[in-house]
């Protein structure tokens, strides 16, 4: 398996007023192989979007390294065009991510023009039509505006726009969270098909654990800017090791009564990212806290089972 991207101790601190920082991502290390669908899962504010955007150099990191095919992209000011084209993103909200006054043709085609990937207008249109068809839409949409499309259709346009540049790596930031479930199923199946067709590598951001289970092969569970647990999706679902993961799994509503276990209802709310708890980020809400060590020492990510990493003192 060939590694595509590797993160080492990556951090993002957003400055906030004087002397204050939001520690949005606070020391994340992980590696993603080519053709993986890698899930970033976590509750709101855990740093998923920030991490995803750093991976494709949409925002700078505060410290740490990101190796893309062996090259540290955090050291580069501006990505060379080729690398830029290789890394694409699909945003959460199909209603605000498409320019309202541009026609679908221009929305999908603008990247092709800036990267000089087409030689003539004719070639441009042919290519756009090809990608419209690929995402299951007809040529009749070429000259329409985003407001004339449904949410699912808009998200298809956003996907076409990302894929037409023939990228290798696509960050999908909650691509279906604003869509209806029947439409969501359609978009997910489309994304899976396109991965096969173009040998893509995805980072799939979601807060829906069952959705992550269906689409991803590996997941990282994030909490307050840190990874709590990461590894093969199935292995994490079968055997969640971190108390936070365990609690999350216990409270996701389930259809089948037999699958319900005793709910572990976490106390309180997620602490503020301005001054997150010292030691383990989760200790203020943890039901398995072992003692002072949890308050003082930040647990390192440790491989507890094969390819299954956990950051928790229970496994010291």
């Amino acid at each position: 398996m060939e590694e595509l991207i590797q993160l080492k101790e990556i951090k993002k601190y957003f400055p906030w007023k004087k002397y204050k920082y939001v520690k949005a991502v606070d020391g994340v290390s992980l590696s993603i192989n080519k053709r993986d669908i890698f899930g970033l899962v976590g509750e709101s504010g855990s740093g998923k979007t920030t991490l995803g955007r750093m991976m494709i150099h949409l925002i700078d990191s505060t410290s740490g390294s990101i190796f893309y095919k062996g090259k540290d992209i955090t050291k580069i000011k501006k990505l060379e065009k080729n690398l830029r084209r290789n890394m694409q993103i699909v945003f959460q909200d199909p209603y605000s991510s498409l320019h309202p006054r541009k026609k679908i043709k221009d929305i999908i085609g603008s990247g092709l023009r800036t990267h000089n990937l087409v030689r003539s207008e004719g070639e441009l249109v042919t290519k756009i039509e090809q990608f419209l068809n690929l995402v299951g839409m007809g040529e009749e949409h070429l000259y329409r505006y985003p407001h004339e499309l449904s949410g699912g259709q808009r998200q298809r346009i956003a996907i076409a726009r990302a894929l037409i540049l023939n990228p290798e790596f696509v960050v999908l930031d909650e691509p279906t969270s604003s869509l209806d479930v029947s439409v969501q199923a359609e978009i997910l199946n489309l994304l899976k098909k396109l991965r096969e067709e173009f040998d893509l590598t995805y980072v799939f951001i979601t807060h829906d654990l069952y959705l992550a289970r269906i689409i991803t092969e590996k997941i990282a569970i994030m909490y307050l800017g840190k990874i709590m647990e990461y590894g093969d999706t199935e292995s994490i679902f079968k055997n969640p090791l971190h108390p936070y993961t365990e609690a999350l799994f216990s409270v996701i509503p389930k259809l089948d009564p037999q699958k319900r276990t005793k709910k572990i209802i976490l106390k309180g709310e997620i602490p503020s990212p301005f001054d997150p708890p010292l030691g383990c980020r989760f200790h203020t809400r943890c039901m398995k806290k072992i003692g002072e060590i949890c308050e003082k020492v930040s647990p390192p990510l440790k491989e507890v089972e094969e390819k299954h990493f956990v950051s928790c003192h229970l496994y010291d």
Partner: peptide, 22 residues
């Protein structure tokens, strides 16, 4: 029936679409 198969849940290994839209 379609709705149950289309939602990610403890039951689903894959999602089945309901073709068309509302």
């Amino acid at each position: 029936k379609g709705l149950i198969k289309a939602i990610p849940s403890d039951r689903s290994k894959e999602l089945v679409e309901i073709r068309g839209s509302v």
